[in-house]
């Protein structure tokens, strides 16, 4: 994914803390039990990993860390799971129908998300939603391969059809 020419906000202390907790949680999930010794090791390992990855912490800077971000996150996850299941039923229908109904085209969609993390999550979501595959991200324009593009659609209508349902929730927890 291209990240150049994106105005990147500076990561704060909370982002470091967030990364630390994330690494620690991953450690505990991999260990799979609540031994005191394992936990102590996790505290140390997570600290080392967090410090070692400080140069790359700016990736997380787009994250809004506040209690008010929780609800949009849950809404986003709900929308995402529904879209994922829809995408698969849609794809199964296309693949299994003898006539193979396809009308593929590469279209452009716009995003208002500023951070590279936000665009990354949006691009991944688009790839897993019905009939669309993110091909490239060029600043605020995403190139999307659409299996069933309506003829004569312009950038506004495709943006509305593809990104808006994710973006309205995404902007609640990433910049």
């Amino acid at each position: 994914m291209t990240t150049k020419s994106i105005q990147q906000p500076e990561p704060g202390f909370v982002h470091g803390l967030f990364l630390y907790l994330l690494v620690f949680t991953l450690w505990m999930l991999l260990v799979g039990n609540l031994d005191t010794a394992e936990m102590a090791a996790g505290v140390v390992v997570a600290l080392i990993v967090t410090l070692a990855s400080r140069p790359h912490l700016s990736i997380l800077a787009g994250l809004i860390i506040s209690p008010s971000a929780l609800l949009p996150l849950l809404r986003y996850l709900g929308t995402f799971i529904v879209a994922l299941v829809q995408a698969n039923l849609d794809m199964a229908r296309r693949v299994l129908s003898p006539s193979l109904p396809l009308q593929p085209a590469v279209v452009e969609v716009e995003t208002k998300l500023k951070s590279s993390l936000g665009r990354l999550i949006l691009a991944n979501s688009i790839t897993l939603t019905p009939g669309t595959l993110t091909v490239d991200v060029q600043d605020e324009v995403l190139l999307v391969h659409w299996v069933d593009a309506p003829p004569g659609s312009d950038r506004l209508s495709t943006t509305k059809a593809i990104t808006s349902k994710f973006e309205q929730h995404l902007k609640g927890f990433v910049l």
Partner: peptide, 23 residues
């Protein structure tokens, strides 16, 4: 099946990714 039936690479990627992820 999508991987076999789809007419070009991009459509094959689509079929492959989505179905296999949820699967």
């Amino acid at each position: 099946i999508g991987l076999i039936r789809m007419p070009d690479v991009y459509n094959r990627i689509q079929a492959g990714t989505k179905a296999v992820t949820l699967g």
